[in-house]
Amino acid sequence: MKLKVLAACLLAASSPVLAEVDITPPTSATPAEGLEAWSRIYEVASHPRCANCHTGASDRPMWSGPSYGKTRPHGMNIRAGESRIGAEHVLCSTCHTTKSDDWAKANTTSHAAPRVAMDWQLAPVEADWFGRTSVEICEQLRDPERNGDRDMLALAEHLDHDLILHWAWKPGGGREPAPYSLQAHVNDILIWGTAGFPCPEN
C-alpha cells in the first residue's frame, strides 16, 4: 500500500485550546492514597468513553451503549489504520468533524458522530486499554517508553490539552459520561504521581 499525501492530512491540532484544568500537585501522597487514586483512574480508563478508542494493536475503535446490546467493534467496518486517523480507509474526521464554535451544541444529537474542536483519532498503539486489567493499564501509563515520555505533570497537561479527552466527560447525545470529572481525574493523576505511581499487585 502506498499513501500519497498522508502527511497532508495529519492536520495539526491547532485549534485554540482552553485551559480548563487546574494542575496543582499535592505536596505529598502516601502509597495507599496513590493506589486509591489509581483505582479511580482505572475506572475512568476502562470506561467505554475512554477504552473504546484505546484498542491497542487493533485499529478498530469500539462501540458500546444501550443501543448496541454488548460492546462491539465500531460499525461500518471502520479501521483507523496505521495512521490511527483512518487515512488508509476513511478518515475519522470524515464523520467526526471538527466543531470549533459553539461547543455546547457540538454533541446534542443522539447517535451522531461525536465531534470536538480537534481532529478525531484513535489513541496510540501503546496506550492499550480496551479489555486490559488494572495492572496492565497502570504499568503502561507510568512507563515513559509507552506513555509518550510523560511525567506526572505532562500527563496532566495532556489531559488539559487533548480535547477528545474532555469529550469523555461531556459526551452528549444521551451517552454515559466517564465517571468523576476531568478535574477530579487530573487531581487523581497528580496524587498517583506524587505517591510514586503505585500499581496494584497482580
Binding site: 500500500m1 500519497k4 467496518n77 471502520i78 487515512a87
Partner: peptide, 15 residues
C-alpha cells in the same frame, strides 16, 4: 489518498 488499495482496504473504505 490511497491510489493502490488492497481488497481489504476497499472493504474498509467503502463500508
Amino acid at each position: 489518498l490511497n491510489p493502490e488499495p488492497t481488497d481489504e482496504e476497499i472493504d474498509a473504505a467503502m463500508s
